[in-house]
């Protein structure tokens, strides 16, 4: 508080005017300081886009649009295409969402409706700790613990069981390596689970209790209240949370790099090894020789940034709309 306590008694008008001026000047300086820090955030964002664009220029010039739909990835002949990586990124993330969205909503429902009150906080914190575990930990755990276990106990069984079922034999076929697209997706789903359950839980809490009470009063079961009243009310928030999680999943690097197998092919089987944009960059960047190779990797980073930007921006807009509604402005 020292800096607002005035040093000495000021009696004369000029002295007071001087103090006001001094305060005003300091105010202006401080305001400018905070303003420039805020602008710096914008500058970082612009810098990221610009530097990626500049770095990707040689590859863009060389390959044009074909970079987006070519599956070739040959550092020796310097033919590069991002299709296999883009495909892997989208497939792993979408598969992860298939698991994480229902489970995440289930956890949110458990925490708001079923869980005994004294257990809510510890269980909620435990779930959120999943989000705090660094992705490299998921990676090392996936590679050494989960993949071998999955390979020995689950994968062979699935492959054998579905070997004669049309279509499914393609999707769940091939040699059981343990690592691959499916393993990566499953680990991704565990990682993004807390994001979905946290946002969903927050939105569930914005549902006016009177709506739920009215439904219970009509004799609805808990399931009916959740499915017909709470979820429709919270829909945009849940979708926003899922998009946020999708954004995370798309850009997730280390966990995926460990367990996806790094193979630049598109294969029908989700048990087959594949690659994602971030895994390709992480694996190959420091070993990339030649400007074109490097530039192609940077262009992939640009594509990743673009995709996540779209996803995260729509998540923002949805959650903001919700916040406005919660704020009462309708």
């Amino acid at each position: 508080m020292a800096d607002i306590a005035l040093a000495e008694q000021m009696s004369s008008v000029p002295e007071r005017a001087a103090a006001v001026r001094k305060g005003g000047a300091r105010d202006a300086r401080f305001r400018l300081l905070t303003l420039s820090a805020a602008v710096l955030v914008l500058a970082i964002f612009a810098g990221v886009m610009l530097s990626l664009l500049l770095g990707a220029m040689p590859a863009i010039k060389q390959f044009g649009w074909s970079f987006l739909y070519s599956e070739a990835w040959n550092p020796v002949t310097e033919k590069f295409g991002a299709l296999a990586s883009i495909y892997g990124t989208l497939v792993t993330s979408v598969l992860a969402m298939f698991v994480a969205v229902p489970v995440g909503i289930g956890i949110a429902i458990f925490l708001t409706e079923i869980c005994p009150r004294p257990l809510r906080r510890p269980i909620g914190i435990a779930i959120e700790l999943l989000a705090g575990i660094p992705s490299i930990i998921y990676g090392i755990w996936g590679l050494f613990i989960f993949a071998p276990w999955f390979q020995a106990n689950v994968q062979t069984w699935i492959v054998d069981t579905l070997a004669d079922v049309p279509y499914l034999q393609d999707i769940f076929g091939g040699p059981p390596y343990g690592i691959g697209v499916f393993t990566a997706s499953l680990i991704l789903s565990i990682m993004v689970l807390p994001f979905i359950s946290a946002v969903t839980r927050d939105v569930f809490e914005t549902v006016p209790p009177v709506l739920k009470e009215a439904a219970y009063g009509l004799g609805c079961t808990t399931w009916e209240v959740m499915w017909r009243v709470v979820l429709p009310f919270a829909r945009s928030g849940v979708v926003g949370g899922a998009m946020l999680a999708l954004g995370r999943a798309l850009g997730e690097t280390m966990a995926v790099t460990f367990v996806i197998g790094n193979a630049h092919h598109i294969q029908k089987s989700i048990f087959a090894p594949g690659t994602t944009i971030s895994a390709t960059i992480a694996n190959e960047f420091t070993e990339a020789v030649g400007d074109l190779y490097l530039s192609s990797l940077i262009e992939m980073g640009l594509i990743l940034f673009f995709i996540t930007f779209i996803v995260l921006a729509s998540a923002q807009l949805m959650l903001q709309a919700l916040e406005r509604r919660a704020g009462g402005a309708k």
């Binding site: 990626l52 971030s278 980073g301 940034f305 996540t308 921006a313 923002q316």
Partner: peptide, 14 residues
């Protein structure tokens, strides 16, 4: 908020 969830590998590239 976008930078908050943007892929960290992209920051590295930047």
């Amino acid at each position: 908020d976008i930078l908050l969830s943007a892929p960290s590998i992209v920051t590295g590239l930047f």
